[in-house]
Amino acid sequence: MIDLHCHTLHSDGTDTPERLALLAEEAKLTALCLTDHDTLGGIPEFLAMQPQVKVRLLVGTELSCRFLGRSLHVLGLLVDPTDVRFQTRLDELRQRRDDRNLRMITRLGELGCPVTYEDVQAQAETPLISRVHFAKALAARGFVRRAPEAFERLIGDDCPGFVPREELSPVEATRWIREAGGVPVVAHPGRFAGGAFRWDEAMRDLQREGMEGLEAYYGEYRAAEQKYFVALGASLGMVVTGGSDYHGANKPGLRLGAGRGGLKVPDDLLDALERQQKGGTYR
């Protein structure tokens, strides 16, 4: 089994890249792709573990796009970590994130929940700050009882404390990923705009904009969702991938490689992904 979607403390997870490689070995995975948000910062430590483990360690990232007025996450799988242009583009995305974070500090203060940038930074072990760290800071200051409540009441999408950041279009995201030698894949489509959203036509639109795959196996899908997305990928001729979306302690009960317990991503999906990588437009 493989896992092509996971996070470390370099974005919004809690484990180090080294720990993630060891967990993959314990889970007897054959391949693991690290996909931190907007960064390849943990990749050198991750790949340095390859001599110590049998599991194949692969390079990826997760970017945010704007699609139909909402945030759509896109996995860039098998990107080249030495691609200087891609690194520069990721630096630009992190600057956009930093700008959004400062605006969110102001918004929360206006809502009677003042936290400082230092409060939020104290919850992060790396320079990249996400809403997870805001949630922990809000809990630490007593504005919510637990960090998940901050997403429910304050900083989740459509909540009063949420501040959107400038996001890529799907065309931009797919081009960036493909030019970096990777394969652009729609992450957890079943979590976009609610489970009732019908993806048939939307995925065709994204395919026309350069998307090459979709995440049909996911750590929190129900069996019916997985079946639907596997069939949709096949009908469109898109590569199908899968992953747990492991975040360590930030997603309690969700295990690397196994998700909530029933996830099994077949090895042969990686073969198809690598064939797609070699046959893509920019390679």
Rank of each mutant, 00 (worst) to 15 (best):
M1W: 00
M1I: 00
I2K: 00
D3G: 02
L4W: 02
L4Q: 04
L4Y: 01
C6W: 01
C6Q: 05
H10K: 09
S11M: 06
T16F: 09
P17N: 14
E18N: 10
E18C: 14
R19E: 15
A21N: 07
E26S: 15
A27D: 08
L32W: 02
T35K: 06
L40W: 08
L40G: 03
G42H: 05
M49K: 13
Q50V: 04
P51A: 11
Q52P: 00
V53H: 12
L57K: 10
L57D: 10
L57R: 12
S64F: 07
F67H: 10
F67R: 09
L68M: 13
S71I: 07
L72I: 03
H73V: 08
T82L: 14
T82A: 15
Q87D: 12
Q87A: 15
Q87S: 12
R89S: 06
E92R: 13
R94I: 10
R94K: 12
N101M: 07
L102Q: 12
E110W: 07
E110Q: 15
G112Q: 11
G112K: 07
C113G: 04
V115Y: 07
T116I: 06
E118L: 12
D119I: 02
Q123A: 10
E125D: 14
H133W: 05
H133R: 09
K136H: 13
L138K: 04
L138M: 05
R145E: 12
R146P: 00
A150V: 01
E152W: 03
E152V: 08
L154K: 00
I155D: 01
P160Q: 05
P160F: 03
F162R: 00
R165P: 00
L168E: 01
W176L: 13
I177L: 03
A180G: 04
G181P: 06
G182V: 02
P184L: 05
P184T: 02
A187F: 11
P189H: 04
G194M: 10
A196C: 06
F197P: 06
D200P: 00
A202Q: 10
E209W: 11
M211C: 15
G213F: 08
G213R: 11
A216N: 08
Y217E: 10
A223Y: 11
A224N: 14
Q226M: 14
Q226Y: 08
A231D: 15
L232E: 11
G233R: 03
S235A: 15
M238L: 15
V239M: 06
G243T: 01
D245P: 04
Y246M: 07
A249L: 14
K251R: 13
P252L: 02
P252I: 06
R255V: 03
G257R: 10
R260P: 00
G262F: 12
K264E: 14
V265H: 09
V265P: 07
V265A: 04
V265M: 10
L269H: 05
D271F: 09
R275T: 06
Q276K: 13
G279D: 13
Y282H: 15
R283T: 13
